[in-house]
């Protein structure tokens, strides 16, 4: 790990790409990473499986600074590579939940910090909607990042804190997405 004056810390990221099945495509996709100072960690090239459009899914793990990731993704897109997702790999999976009830009055910031500490999760994004004021029933959408395979623990932690604060949790039905 190294610090950089331009801000942010060096982090591992997973970038998911879809490549056309043509010679040179993979190399074409890797160049922008090196060109922008990214450090390639691993490539998972699923040659056997195809997306519905007949593309090959590729997962690239790389290490770089936040602004470098933006440049890499921009360059990839410019060179015609289909970028499906570019996220922070430290937290490989994300789970979105809703909290409903007296979200604000029950110390929202304590709710968030409890979830983070109890479940080794990181709150990536929070949206709050309190159309009738913060003292009435309101809703919050939390996007939580966690390590692969830990989403169950995260929802469990959310449920616990919600129960203590008499909030209703709307959990995702995540295991359903994908296969059909």
């Amino acid at each position: 790990m190294s610090d950089d004056a331009s801000g942010g810390e060096l982090r591992a990221h997973t970038v998911r790409l879809e490549l056309v099945d043509e010679p040179g495509e993979l190399l074409n996709a890797l160049e922008p990473i090196a060109d922008n100072g990214g450090n390639l960690l691993s490539i998972f090239h699923e040659r056997g499986s195809l997306t519905p459009r007949g593309h090959i899914p590729v997962e690239v793990d790389l290490e770089c600074l936040p602004h470098q990731l933006d440049a890499i993704v921009a360059d990839l897109r410019e060179s015609g590579v289909n970028v499906i997702r570019a996220g922070t790999e430290r937290y490989g999976e994300e789970v979105t939940v809703l909290l409903v009830g007296h979200v604000v009055e029950t110390d929202f910031s304590e709710t968030l910090s409890t979830i983070e500490s109890d479940a080794a999760a990181s709150v990536v994004d929070v949206s709050l909607s309190a159309p009738n004021g913060t003292s009435d029933v309101s809703s919050a959408r939390l996007r939580l990042a966690t390590e692969p395979g830990k989403t169950g623990e995260v929802t469990e932690a959310v449920r616990e804190v919600a129960e203590r604060k008499d909030l209703q949790v709307v959990e995702p039905l995540t295991e359903l997405e994908g296969s059909a």
Partner: peptide, 22 residues
């Protein structure tokens, strides 16, 4: 068992913003 009788409209709005619904 949990019902939908306590869900405010704001919950559905937040879900929709994220490409989801309840």
């Amino acid at each position: 068992v949990e019902g939908i009788d306590e869900l405010p409209g704001s919950a559905l709005e937040l879900a929709a913003e994220d490409g989801r619904t309840i």
